[in-house]
């Protein structure tokens, strides 16, 4: 088993979160400081309601863009182009193991067919460098199909991402992607 590594964060998500949080903190500091002086409430309302309209428009715009863009980036296999000659990998989770067949594939597009032998599990897929590529749940009685591009040769870590009992944190497996 290769060492568990987690590196290369979801950098854009982290940056977006830090920037928005910093703006919020700045606003809260400014509002807190403003409370030391007195501004007639009528005046606050006159300005505040105007600003609120723009705040509403801005927020709705950002959220709408986020949702619409997301609709074009869905991970669901039926939302993507046909896989064609992709390699299929059957993955079954059990307390506390993964069966991965085959456990070695060539670089390229793969389709994970994921299910469970007992309870709910979650299949997290990490690149050889430890970057989280995505996840899909393993649910008893259901088969979830995930299409994903695995171009980089090396050992991909598969970790359980749904609490499944006292051995949950020990539930890992390796998928090898061969050299070209």
């Amino acid at each position: 088993m290769r060492e568990l590594t987690y590196s290369e964060p979801q950098i854009w998500i982290a940056i977006a979160f830090v920037i928005i949080s910093a703006l919020l903190v700045t606003a809260f500091v400014a509002i807190g400081r403003s409370s030391r002086r007195e501004v007639p409430f009528e005046q606050v309302k006159a300005i505040g309601y105007g600003v609120r309209t723009w705040w509403l428009v801005g927020l709705v715009t950002v959220l709408t863009v986020g949702v619409v863009v997301s609709l074009f980036m869905l991970p669901y296999s039926n939302a993507q182009e046909p896989v064609g000659a992709a390699q299929e990998i059957a993955v079954k989770g059990g307390q506390y193991y993964w069966t991965v067949a085959p456990n070695e594939v060539a670089p390229g597009r793969v389709r994970f067919s994921v299910t469970s032998a007992d309870v709910n599990h979650g299949l997290g897929i990490y690149s050889p460098k430890g970057h989280m590529l995505g996840s899909v749940q393993a649910m008893p009685g259901y088969e979830n199909e995930l299409d994903i591009q695995l171009d980089e040769p090396g050992e991909y870590l598969l970790s359980c991402l749904e609490m499944c009992g006292a051995g949950h944190h020990k539930m890992h497996a390796i998928l090898k992607v061969a050299e070209r």
């Binding site: 998500i13 986020g66 997301s70 980036m73 979650g122 997290g124 995505g134 996840s135 991402l161």
Partner: peptide, 11 residues
């Protein structure tokens, strides 16, 4: 957002 959740789900 679903594509974000794809990489953050249960992390």
């Amino acid at each position: 957002l679903i594509p974000v959740n794809f990489t953050l789900h249960n992390t």
